[in-house]
């Protein structure tokens, strides 16, 4: 366990406060994400888990407190800033452009251009290059069943669409991938597919923050579970030390967990990618 104790967090949020008018979204919230782990963030509605995640993904700016990436204090003004740091987010809303094909969606906003004059002067996109890497990316995440990368995304099932979103995040998220309720709109089989992708990403050394309401899913894939309550962190537990009922009790405030019983330090030795 000696190597675990020396691990530094990839993402650290310290004392984040965010208010919306008179509503307190975050009340001195903390969060640590360590390399190569899946950190689940759970909490009741209004506990501030979305706000917390939005601060980390750049969608919201906290009123005070600091966010550190690899021990460097950062300030994100938009999600584009967060992306520049290698933080990618997958949304529950299946954030894809339905009429565009798989490859175009994977590279949306970050298109690859042809080399040479065609690319620099005429801004021509490298369609075949994007398709090839899109195919590789999808195969890497275990979705090799999709053959045709020029297929419009609207012809795909919900699970396949979410797979495109996850593949996009994995391709560009060099630091962290955040999944915000990625299975909320999906059926059981499709959800399992997404969970498998999460494990594949983790095994390749990419740390993941998973926001979910689905307790069984959380307990299946998470290494540590961050329980958010009333705008701040109530506890961090692991599926090994606590049960789902415990987690719910912490969420509602019925159970307090002593700091020494929490999992504030990493529990998984990161995979070397």
């Amino acid at each position: 366990m000696s190597d675990l104790s020396s691990i530094q967090p990839v993402v650290q949020a310290k004392g984040l406060i965010k208010t919306f008018g008179r509503v307190v979204g975050l009340n001195s919230a903390n969060l640590e994400l360590y390399p190569g782990e899946v950190l689940a963030v759970i909490g009741d509605n209004g506990a501030g888990k979305s706000t917390l995640i939005k601060c980390i993904s750049g969608a919201e700016t906290p009123d005070s407190g600091e966010i550190m990436i690899d021990n460097e204090v950062v300030s994100f003004k938009s999600s584009l800033d967060a992306r520049a740091y290698g933080i990618e987010t997958v949304y529950q809303t299946l954030a894809v452009a339905p009429a565009l094909d798989i490859a175009s969606n994977l590279y949306l906003g970050r298109e690859k251009r042809k080399s040479g004059i065609l690319g620099s002067v005429f801004r021509k996109l490298d369609h075949s290059g994007m398709r090839t890497t899109a195919k590789e990316q999808m195969t890497k995440l275990g979705i090799g069943t999709l053959q045709d990368m020029s297929q419009a995304v609207e012809t795909l099932s919900g699970g396949q669409r979410q797979a495109v979103s996850v593949a996009r995040a994995e391709a560009f998220g060099s630091k962290v991938v955040i999944l915000d309720e990625p299975t909320a709109a999906l059926g059981v089989r499709e959800s399992n597919q997404v969970l498998k992708m999460i494990e594949l990403m983790r095994d390749r050394g990419l740390p993941i923050i998973l926001i979910s309401h689905n307790m069984p899913q959380v307990f299946e894939v998470a290494d540590r579970i961050h329980v958010q309550r009333l705008g701040s962190r109530a506890a961090v537990v692991t599926p090994q030390t606590h049960t789902m009922n415990d987690a719910v009790a912490i969420m509602t405030g019925a159970l307090k967990v002593d700091e020494k019983d929490q999992a504030l330090r990493p529990v998984r030795v990161p995979a070397t990618a």
Partner: peptide, 24 residues
């Protein structure tokens, strides 16, 4: 068909929220 701007025109018309989340 061949430029990023062209793709973005389609994406914005298709679903502006998704386009925005994709960084457009």
């Amino acid at each position: 068909k061949n430029t990023a701007w062209g793709k973005h025109v389609y994406a914005v018309g298709d679903d502006p929220a998704a386009a925005s989340l994709a960084g457009i």
